[in-house]
Every structure is written in structure tokens, then in C-alpha cells.
Simulated scan of single mutants.
Amino acid sequence: MLSESSRPIIESTLQTIAERINDITVIFYRKMFEYHPELMDGMFSRADQAEGIQPRALAGSVPVFASYILANPDSYPDEMLARIAHKHASLGVTADQYEIVYKYLFAAIAENLGDACTPEIAEAWTEVYWLMADVLVKIEKGLYDGQKNDVIHSNFKLVSRKEAGTSVLDMIFEPADSTVMSDAVAGQYVTVIVKTEDGLRQPRQYTLLPSAQNQRRIAVKQNEDGEVSPMLHKLEVGDIIEISNPYGDVVLGGYSDQDSQPLYLFSAGIGIVPMVAFLAELKKNHSKRSVVAVHADSSSEAWPLREEYLKLVAELDDAKAISFLKDGEGDFQGEVRVESLDMPRLASVYMCGPLSYMQSVRSALVQQGIPGRNIQYEIFGPDQWILRATRRSMRGNRV
């Protein structure tokens, strides 16, 4: 809980900090990587840094957290914090690294604000930072303690690779050492680390596909302009890379077959991966739940994991697949039209795909009367969307 002495200071400076956070972020990362270049090795994405996505997501979470606790003095933004903590755990973030972030973030704030950064302002924002950091450290400790091993990233050997759609590889890895594998829940992801041509270890997250015991299976779509996916596509059977324990909070937990809410799975392109995992989990549990799997793609040839996806749908008791393909060969042509699906208002929805796709689908779902709380999503890379969603959830609730 924010102290009464800090509350008025945060209220009066929140807008300024929020407006300046992008400029503050530039200073923050420049200073931090200058003195701690080791953080770029295996933890921070060089590509996301160049695009500015990861910096805005990390530093931007602090004013969002501040805004939330001003509006909700007795609670924290649990969804946002859980999303951050799972990503941190997959990268191996440690408690002492919050001290490093604090040092350089607050040096950047002081530099940006200049004389306006009084000791009282610095102290109030320090309180906000450590309220957030302490919660994250506790969540991350719980995530680490819940694993079957204490290894952040262990070695895995590629044992199978095959094409699974246009520029998509279906890849299976098995342990290359004696590290005990932790259990994964459908919808979770792992951080994969490869060594780039200049020797820097770079991380990326990939959702896990259904696999045999003692295996990790992922689908990698090659981004020709990317840094990691082309390296993964060059791997041959027998090559070894580093893979984390499974993490991620976008899972099917919380619903049961007794729940009358039908389940809708919306995916586009490689966003089909978590949906395949969900469908396999439903099949494994002999689910009787009503499921509608909606996929959008350019063509049936480009559609990743198409045969496996459709087979899983067909094997469920009450499920159907609906496709929106731009080439006209699907059930519908063009972009997804939610209004054509006649969805019940109490449907539970999961989404995965490009951000623009999910934004469009979510807007249409809300317009059709689906409550926002019933819509969950997985996003590739740093999640700035949840920061905006957290802000939206607070509108009309300010004190």
C-alpha cells in the first residue's frame, strides 16, 4: 500500500512521468547497458531494444503500476504483474537485478526532470518502484520454486525438424544433459536462447506444442529480417541450444467441463500454436465442452500445423473449426468477421496472432457483447498491450 505521504506527490507527478517515460527510457537503457553489458547476453532482446518495444514495456510498467495503486489503494494489478513475472522467470531475472534497474532508471528520471526532481519526488517514486519490485520478486520466487530443477536454461538437442506451413518449422528437442524436466501446462512457453554470429546469446519465447514425455516441441516461423528465427531454421538434428523451464499465465485453468460457457479459440498465422496445445489438452481430458476454433490465414498452404489442428478438432465431442482464408478456400474469405459467428455473450475467448489481428478481433468481440474479462490473449514479444488494458480498466475508478 502506498504511504499517505507519497500519495499526493505521485498524484501530482504521475502525468509528467507518464508523458516523459519514453525519453527517460532512452537514458535509462543507455546508462544501464554501458555499465552492465552482460545483461544483453541471454536476457534482453537486441532486436526489441532497437525497435524500442521492450524498453517501453519495462519502464512503462512503473507509471501504470503507480496509476493503478492510486485508483485501487488496497490491491495490485495482478494480471499485469503475473504477465511480467512469468516473462522475467523465463529469462532468469534475479532479485539483485532489480537493484541495477532501480539505480539506472532513477538516474534517468533525475536527469530528465533536472531540478524538478526534488528529494521528496525521488523518495515517493522510489516507494512505488519497490512496491512493484517486491511483489514481482515474490511471484518470481514462487515460479522458480515450483519447477523440478533450479537451472534457468539447460541444454537441449534437436531431434526432429519438419516443415509445418510456409516458412514454419516444427522442431522437437530433448535434454542434452541430466537436468530433470519440469512439467508444462498447455499454453505455456519457453525461452529459447541461440548464439548469434557475433557470439551474443539472444532469447526468444516460443509456446510449447503437444509432445511426447521428456521433449520440448515448438513451431518457429522464420522472419527474414529477424535475428533468432533464421538461426533456429539453420539448426540441424543433433545441434544443441539452451531452453528454459516452461512459464506463462495464459492457460485453460479456471474452467471445467461443467462450465456452460462455450470456448472460442481465435488464431492467425503462427498464433495457432497455443490453440493446438489447448485442443490437445481438451482431448487428453476427454472434454465435453463446446469448442469453436477460428483460424485466419492467407491460404491453406500457409496455414501452420493445419492437419494436426483440424484432426484435434474432429476428435473432440463438441467442436468445430471455422477458417477465414484470404484466397477464398476457407469457410469464409478475407478477414475474420466476428458478427458472422453468432457468439453467445458468455463465451470464453482465447486469442493469439499479430497484435493488429487481436486488436481488431477484441474490438469486434466487445461490440458483440462479450465481456472483456472473458477474453484472454497471448502476445509475441514484450507486452505493451496489457499496460494499455490496465490503464483502460482504471478509467472511471480514479480517486
Results as ranks from 00 to 15, higher is better:
residue 97 Q to M: 15
residue 99 E to H: 14
residue 99 E to V: 14
residue 100 I to Q: 00
residue 100 I to A: 02
residue 101 V to E: 09
residue 101 V to L: 14
residue 102 Y to F: 15
residue 103 K to T: 09
residue 103 K to Y: 01
residue 107 A to W: 08
residue 109 I to W: 00
residue 110 A to R: 07
residue 110 A to M: 09
residue 111 E to I: 12
residue 111 E to W: 06
residue 112 N to H: 14
residue 112 N to S: 15
residue 113 L to Y: 11
residue 114 G to W: 08
residue 114 G to T: 13
residue 114 G to E: 08
residue 118 T to F: 01
residue 118 T to C: 00
residue 118 T to R: 06
residue 119 P to K: 11
residue 120 E to A: 15
residue 121 I to D: 03
residue 121 I to Q: 05
residue 121 I to C: 02
residue 123 E to K: 10
residue 123 E to V: 06
residue 126 T to W: 04
residue 126 T to H: 09
residue 128 V to C: 09
residue 128 V to D: 05
residue 128 V to N: 04
residue 129 Y to W: 11
residue 129 Y to H: 09
residue 129 Y to A: 07
residue 130 W to R: 12
residue 131 L to Q: 13
residue 131 L to K: 13
residue 132 M to Q: 10
residue 133 A to R: 13
residue 135 V to M: 11
residue 136 L to M: 15
residue 137 V to H: 09
residue 138 K to V: 15
residue 140 E to P: 12
residue 140 E to N: 12
residue 142 G to D: 13
residue 142 G to M: 10
residue 142 G to H: 10
residue 142 G to C: 07
residue 144 Y to C: 08
residue 145 D to E: 15
residue 146 G to V: 13
residue 147 Q to Y: 08
residue 149 N to T: 10
residue 150 D to T: 15
residue 151 V to A: 07
residue 152 I to R: 03
residue 152 I to T: 09
residue 153 H to S: 05
residue 154 S to G: 13
residue 157 K to I: 02
residue 159 V to T: 12
residue 160 S to D: 14
residue 161 R to T: 05
residue 162 K to T: 09
residue 163 E to P: 00
residue 166 T to M: 08
residue 167 S to H: 11
residue 167 S to P: 00
residue 168 V to D: 03
residue 170 D to A: 04
residue 170 D to Y: 03
residue 171 M to E: 02
residue 173 F to L: 07
residue 173 F to R: 01
residue 173 F to S: 04
residue 174 E to W: 01
residue 175 P to T: 07
residue 175 P to N: 00
residue 176 A to E: 01
residue 178 S to P: 02
residue 178 S to W: 01
residue 179 T to K: 01
residue 184 A to P: 03
residue 186 A to M: 08
residue 187 G to V: 04
residue 190 V to K: 00
residue 190 V to Q: 01
residue 191 T to F: 02
residue 193 I to L: 10
residue 193 I to K: 04
residue 194 V to Y: 01
residue 196 T to Q: 06
residue 197 E to Q: 11
residue 198 D to Q: 12
residue 198 D to G: 06
residue 199 G to T: 09
residue 201 R to D: 14
residue 202 Q to N: 03
residue 204 R to W: 04
residue 207 T to D: 05
residue 209 L to W: 07
